[in-house]
Nucleic acid binder design. Structure first.
Length: 508
DNA sequence: CGCGTTTGACCCGCGC
DNA sequence: GCGCGGGTCAAACGCG
């Protein structure tokens, strides 16, 4: 680890070397090698394959991606005051005050001036560091994007229109591409989204978002009996009922699935296309004309896992053909791609809330309209509203994404194109995750990186406008480390960096 | 040829 | 018991 001169003066070093110092389950760690708290090292590890947070993601295959150590290494060389040093300074001032009354003002002025100069230097270093950090962040992001495009070109992949690419989506995609394997769920989700877009709107061979060209594995009809035997309405054929006893699932699981299948969550969205790309892989198994609706109702089941009980019905609204009603039922028994996680989480939470009598559980809170306003759906109540219904034979809840608060009709155009819905939800889920600190069941490493990247970016932006650099940096580091709940966070919270310099800068 | 979709038939629950 | 509507199956079909 490079030491750029801060250590000799007992200062704290912010060192982003890309290695772990301790075994904490985080890409960031704190250490104090000297054991006296005078030197503090913060390390971020984005690339280590050995740590548990990254171990869940298989090896990343990003060709021609040369990440230099400098990209990940920032040595601040800060001379931030430790408790010891601060007390020394204060003691010195105190001593000066007591023994030289005549020169009191002069000495104090000299000492203060020296401190101010040192703090000014530190401020300048911090500015440079943050500029460098931001630059490295952007550089790495672009390198990854370039590598992804090369990889995609080599695999004969296709690209989507540039219109859909933006800072957030790029960050999200790059981060996940980084942490997940080539066979990652994200790629499959992206591919699935692409296939759906292709199917719904024709081929988009323009330039922009990279879609991985990978065949989707489908499990066909395996596990069909499971669906049938678990039907809550008692439906199913006799020969399939016989399979009920042979299932290896516990009775508790079966009861849970039955209740989950009972609850239905409808999502109304304005979509001209035949289907909304919600990130999951669905296979159509039937279509019927429903009474009172000139449009057929299509039945889909999830094919991402053999034993997945998730199903959905897709039907156009009779009164407004531009509104697509997706009714979700059942529960996914497999890891979900990010694009599907938001929708699945919302529908699952809605079902849970419905079945539990809308008790305020953490899950149920996910679809609380107030929460939707502030976190889940960034565009707030103008985009989504929720209503529950017991008028049908199944308990049902409707999530209205059509932009019309008073469902159902007439509806005006929402500001979001139909295909952005999963992306909006996915991003929103990230926002929600950040707000609540809730850990996602899959892709936790990606979530951490996303959170970290966002925190760094936010801190950089904030610092640019805020002269109180140390305070903001300390807060940012504290929030990053504290989010993992390890002892490093507690140590950082009590760190002299956060205490002494904060005080000093305010007084200065 | 494999895979996904289509579509007629079948099963079941419910209301009359 | 009968008819209706919802949900599902599975053979047939189409596509790459």
């Amino acid at each position: 680890m490079e030491d750029c001169g801060g250590g000799d003066r007992g200062g704290h070093i912010l060192d982003l070397t890309g290695r772990f110092a301790t075994g904490v389950d985080s890409p960031i760690s704190l250490s104090s090698p000297a054991g006296d708290g005078r030197r503090m090292v913060v390390e971020m590890d984005f690339l280590s394959q050995e740590k548990s947070w990254a171990r869940s993601a298989p090896e990343v295959n990003v060709p021609n991606l040369s990440i230099k150590e400098e990209d990940l290494t920032i040595n601040t060389g800060l001379h931030l005051f430790s408790t010891t040093e601060q007390s020394t300074v204060e003691d010195g001032i105190s001593a000066t005050m007591s023994e030289q009354n005549n020169d009191e003002g002069k000495s104090e002025m000299v000492a203060m001036k020296a401190r101010m100069e040192r703090l000014g230097e530190d401020n300048q270093r911090l500015r440079n560091i943050l500029i460098q950090l931001n630059s490295n962040y952007n550089s790495l992001k672009m390198k990854l994007l370039a590598a992804m495009q090369q990889d995609n070109n080599r695999n004969g992949g296709t690209t989507a229109p540039a219109a859909g690419i933006n800072e957030d989506s790029l960050t999200e995609r790059v981060s996940h591409r980084w942490l997940e394997s080539p066979a990652s769920e994200l790629e499959e989700a992206a591919h699935h989204d692409y296939l759906l877009k292709k199917k719904c709107c024709g081929d988009h061979d323009g330039k922009g978002i990279v879609y991985m060209d990978r065949a989707i594995r489908c499990d066909g009809r395996s596990g069909e009996g499971m669906f049938r035997e678990l039907r809550p309405d008692g439906g199913g054929r006799p020969n399939q009922k016989a399979m009920l006893s042979s299932t290896s699932k516990s009775s508790e699981q079966q009861v849970g699935e039955v209740t989950m299948r009972k609850a239905r969550v409808s999502v109304r969205a304005r979509c001209e296309a035949p289907m909304i790309a919600d990130g999951c892989q669905w296979r159509k198994y039937g279509q019927k004309m429903a009474k009172g609706n000139p449009f057929p109702r299509a039945y889909f089941r999830c094919t991402m896992a053999a034993d997945c009980t998730a199903r959905k019905q897709v039907q156009r609204c009779a009164e407004d053909r531009t509104i697509l009603i997706n009714t979700y039922e059942g529960k996914h028994h497999h890891p979900l791609p990010l694009a599907a996680m938001a929708m699945a989480s919302i529908t699952s939470s809605a079902a849970s809330m419905l079945l539990s009598g809308s008790m305020p559980s953490p899950d149920a809170a996910l679809i609380n309209p107030n929460l939707l306003d502030c976190a889940v759906l960034p565009c707030s109540s103008t985009l989504a509203n929720i209503s529950a219904s017991t008028s049908t034979s199944f308990p049902a809840v409707t999530l209205n994404l059509t932009g019309s608060p008073a469902s159902p009709l007439p509806c005006h155009k929402t500001q979001y194109p139909e295909f952005q819905i999963p992306q909006i939800l996915a991003q929103s889920l990230c926002n929600y995750s950040r707000f609540s600190g809730q850990q996602m069941p899959v892709g936790a490493g990606a979530q951490k990186l996303l959170s970290l990247a966002e925190t760094v970016r936010a801190a950089t932006a904030e610092i640019t406008a805020d002269p109180n650099l140390t305070t903001v940096l300390a807060a940012a580091i504290k929030s990053i480390i504290g989010s993992d709940g390890d002892e490093g966070g507690a140590r950082q919270a009590e760190s002299p960096v956060a205490v002494s310099n904060d005080t000093e800068l305010r007084s200065g």
